[in-house]
Structure formats: structure tokens, C-alpha cells
Computed example of a mutant assay.
Amino acid sequence: MDLNEYQQLALRTASPKDKPNEVFQLLLGLVGETGEIAEKAKKIVRDRGSDFTQWDTEDLTKELGDTLWYLAVLADYFDIPLEEVGRRNIAKLADRRQRAVLGGSGDNR
């Protein structure tokens, strides 16, 4: 399955774009799902000596899927194909690698 196909399938379970506060709900959902992943990572650090080999990958896969759903639907809200999001991100990273600025901080490095 490619990213645009995933996006179209995800939209079958999304609310209409014109639903009041829909973009805000999508943003909060995305942050919430990524927060769940971070919370589980924190517990591995706290309770398992940072041994990420003990991460329940089935659970992680589900949480990453929830995050991907929100990302796909949010991109669609602004008429951005998910494949374009991926393509531009890979191009940005390739450019940074070529210029030897993968490390560091700042959006425009």
C-alpha cells in the first residue's frame, strides 16, 4: 500500500472537514497519540533501564498507526497528499545529508 492509498482509506473513518473545530481536534489527536508513545518510552526508561528491546512492538505498532491516521487526515484537511509529505521530507533530509547538517537544530539548516 502506498501513502496516498493509506490516506484515502483512512479518510473513510474521518469526520467531515466542515465539522466545527475539526482541524483542532485532529491536531489534539496527533499530539495525544505521539504523547502516548512518549509516555510508554518514559516507562521503559524509568522501569526497564532504558532497554528498548523490551518495548512491546505490537503495542508500538498500534500507537504508530493511530499517529499515522491523524497525520494522514490532517494532511488531507489541507489538501496535501500524504505521499507529498513523505517525498518532501525525504528530499529535505537528503539535502541536509549532502550539506552535512543532519545534526544540530533549526528548521532551516
Rank of each mutant, 00 (worst) to 15 (best):
W55K: 00
T61Q: 10
A38E: 12
I44C: 12
R48C: 06
V45K: 05
E33S: 08
G35D: 01
F52I: 14
K40H: 11
I37T: 10
V45P: 05
I37P: 08
E63D: 01
R46I: 13
R46K: 02
T57F: 09
D56R: 09
I44W: 05
E36D: 00
G32C: 05
E58P: 04
D59K: 04
K62P: 03
D47H: 10
K43N: 08
R48P: 14
D59W: 03
E39C: 03
Q54K: 10
T61G: 11
E36C: 02
E58Y: 02
W55S: 13
D56E: 15
D56F: 02
R48E: 02
W55Y: 05
T53K: 05
D47F: 12
D56A: 13
D51Q: 12
A38Y: 04
G35P: 02
D47E: 11
D47V: 08
E63Q: 14
A41F: 12
R48W: 03
T57W: 04
T34R: 02
V45Q: 10
D47Q: 01
D51A: 14
R46Q: 00
G49L: 11
D59Y: 00
W55P: 13
G32I: 12
T61I: 02
T57A: 02
A41W: 12
E58K: 04
K62Q: 14
Q54L: 15
K62W: 13
D51V: 05
V45H: 11
D59R: 01
V45G: 05
A38M: 06
W55Q: 08
F52T: 04
D56C: 06
K62F: 09
K42G: 00
S50Q: 10
G49S: 05
L60V: 12
E39Y: 09
G49T: 03
I44Y: 11
T53E: 15
A38F: 07
W55I: 14
K43W: 10
T57L: 03
A41Q: 06
E39G: 12
E58M: 07
Q54H: 13
Q54V: 07
K40P: 03
T34P: 08
T53M: 13
T34Y: 01
I44V: 05
V45T: 06
K40I: 09
F52P: 01
K62D: 15
A38T: 01
L60G: 14
S50A: 15
K40N: 12
R46V: 09
R48H: 11
K40F: 11
E63H: 00
T57H: 01
D51S: 11
T61M: 09
T34S: 09
K43A: 03
I37A: 00
K43V: 09
S50L: 09
T34K: 10
D56Y: 01
T61V: 07
E33Q: 07
G49E: 08
E33L: 06
R46E: 08
T61K: 11
E39H: 00
T34C: 13
I37N: 10
I37S: 12
K62S: 15
D47T: 14
G32S: 04
D47R: 13
T53I: 08
D51M: 00
E39W: 11
E63T: 01
D56S: 10
L60R: 08
G32D: 14
A41Y: 04
E58H: 02
T57V: 13
W55G: 11
D47N: 14
T34F: 05
A38V: 08
G49Y: 05
G49K: 09
E63K: 08
E39F: 04
G49H: 05
F52R: 06
